[in-house]
Design a protein around this nucleic acid. Structure first.
Lengths: 256, 256
DNA sequence: CCCAATATACTAGTATACAAGTATCCACAA
DNA sequence: TTGTGGATACTTGTATACTAGTATATTGGG
C-alpha cells in the first residue's frame, strides 16, 4: 500500500479567515450541527462514531470542515482516545481525511470516485435481483410491495429522512430475499458515499418516479421475467448518472 | 446497528490448558509467527496493522488464536495505543473478533459468510469484464497475457506466494483496463476473507488449470465475445465452490 | 517598507496510568 | 466430597501527559 507515502498536501487552511474574533480564538461554541451526550453504559467511541457519521452523511458537517480531535473532545466532554478511534473509523470509510500533524477534515465528494462507488452498488444490487428471481415466491412479492407502500406513506407525510430509510429498506430486501443478506454490508459501504451526495442534489419531485421504478422491478419479477427485472433495476439505479451529467454540464468542478 | 448489544459470548477460553509451566505464566516468547522491528519513521500503528494482517491472512496466526494487546506490545516493544488502532482496524475487516473485557481473537472462517463474500467478488469482477469488453484493444490483451506469462514463470519456480500475487495482479488489471480502478478496493475487501481460506485448501496441482482459465477469458475478449468472456470468468471464479462442496461433504463443521 | 529568522500555538501520534468488567484459583464451610 | 464466596490476575475501555512536526504570528534587521 502506498497510502502512507509522504503526506505533504496542505489540506485547506481556511481556518485563518474564519472569524474576526480574537486571533487565538478556538471554537467558541464547538462545531455546529452536532450534539451528543455520551451514555457511559455503552462504548463512548461507538457513540462518537455514530454521531459524527450521521452529521457528515446528512451534511450538517460540510465537506472540508475541520474535525479537530480536541474540538470534539471539548464538545462531547470526553477524552481524545474514543474520539480518535471514531475518527480513524470514519477515515477508513472515506468520510474523513486525516493529515498527520496538520488536522482532520470532512472529506470532499469526488465525482470520479462516485462513478466507481455507483458501479459497485449497481453491480451488486443487479446481481441480487437476478438471484432473487431464481427463488421468487408470492410472499417475497408481498414484502417488497409492503415496502413500497411504506414509501408512499412517507412521501405523503413529506418526510425526506423517512423516505431515505424506506428506500434503503426496499433495496436491502433483495439481499435478504435472495439469501445473500451478507452482501448488503458491501452495498452499504459503497452506498455511504452516494448517500452523502444525494443530500446535496436530491430533488423531491423525483420521488414519485422512484416509486414507479421500484414497482417496475417487482412487476417484472411477478411476471417471471428475471432479466426484465434486472433491466428495470439497472435503469432505476442509473438515474443517478443523470445528475452527474447535469453537474458536469452546469459547472466544471469535480469536487465540492 | 445492533453490534454493540450485550456481548456475553465467551470467546474460546482455551488459554487455561495451554502450558504446564507456572500458573501465572504469560507468553514466554510472545506470539509465534510474527516478527517485526518498528521503524519510527512511519506510523507504528500502520506497521503493526500490516504485520498482523499478513500473519492472519497467511495463517501464521491460526483462527481462534488470542491477540492480546499487551502481548503484541511486549513482542513489538511498543505501547498499547498503536496496537489498539491496528486491532480495531482488523476488527472492521472481520479478521479479528474483539470481546470487551475478555480478549481479542483471530476470527474464525465461517463458510456461510464466505459464500456471500464470493458472491460480491464474482459479481464485481464479472461486471468489470463486461465493461472491459466494451473498450477492448490489443494493448489490453497484451498486458493481460503478460500477467499470465508471469504466472507461468512463478509456477515453474514453485513459488506459491508469488503465484497469489501474480493471480491478484491479473484480476486487478480488469479493474484498471475497464476504467474502474476504484472498484478494486471493494473487490479486495471481499477477497481478503477468501484469500485466508485459500491458504488452507489451495491445491498446487490446480494452478495450471488456473492458467488455462485465465487464458480462456482473454481469448474470448480477443474474439470480441464479451459474454463468452463473462461466462469464462464466472466459471473460473466459481471453481472455489467446488472446494466448499468438498468441505461440506467431508465434514459437518461450518467454521474452522 | 519588506523580508527573514524565530517564537508560539496549534495538530496528530505515542506512551502511560487508571477504571470497569470477567474468569480462574483457592480457601473454607456444609 | 461438594459447592460457595472472595481474592487475584487478567482483559479491553478511557483519561491524561508527552513527543514530533507544521503553520501562523511576531520580531528584528536590511
Amino acid at each position: 500500500m502506498s497510502s502512507r507515502s509522504v503526506q505533504t498536501v496542505p489540506p485547506d487552511p481556511k481556518r485563518s479567515q474564519s472569524s474576526k474574533g480574537p486571533k487565538t480564538a478556538f471554537d467558541p461554541n464547538g462545531i455546529e450541527g452536532i450534539e451528543l451526550v455520551v451514555d457511559r453504559s455503552s462504548p463512548a467511541a461507538d457513540q462518537v462514531y455514530e454521531a459524527l457519521r450521521a452529521a457528515i452523511i446528512e451534511v450538517r458537517l460540510a465537506p472540508g470542515a475541520a474535525i479537530t480531535e480536541n474540538s470534539i473532545c471539548r464538545q462531547f466532554a470526553i477524552s481524545r482516545t474514543p474520539v480518535r478511534a471514531a475518527i480513524q473509523r470514519l477515515q477508513r470509510e472515506g468520510l474523513v481525511d486525516v493529515y498527520p500533524q496538520l488536522g482532520s477534515y470532512v472529506s470532499k465528494i469526488d465525482v470520479e470516485d462516485l462513478r466507481d462507488f455507483h458501479f459497485v452498488r449497481r453491480s451488486l444490487e443487479v446481481a441480487l435481483v437476478r438471484e432473487a428471481a431464481k427463488v421468487w415466491t408470492p410472499a417475497m412479492s408481498a414484502s417488497l410491495r409492503a415496502a413500497v407502500d411504506e414509501q408512499k406513506r412517507v412521501i405523503a407525510k413529506d418526510d425526506p429522512d423517512g423516505f431515505f430509510a424506506a428506500d434503503e429498506e426496499f433495496h436491502r430486501l433483495f439481499a435478504v430475499l435472495s439469501g445473500h443478506e451478507g452482501v448488503w454490508k458491501s452495498v452499504l459501504a459503497a452506498k455511504t458515499q452516494l448517500t452523502r451526495f444525494y443530500r446535496y442534489w436530491a430533488k423531491p419531485q423525483r420521488l414519485p418516479d422512484v416509486i414507479e421504478e421500484h414497482l417496475a422491478v417487482v412487476d417484472a419479477l411477478d411476471r417471471g421475467d428475471g432479466e426484465g427485472a434486472v433491466r428495470a433495476m439497472t435503469r432505476h439505479l442509473d438515474m443517478i448518472f443523470l445528475i452527474f451529467d447535469e453537474m458536469a454540464a452546469s459547472e466544471n468542478e469535480t469536487a465540492v
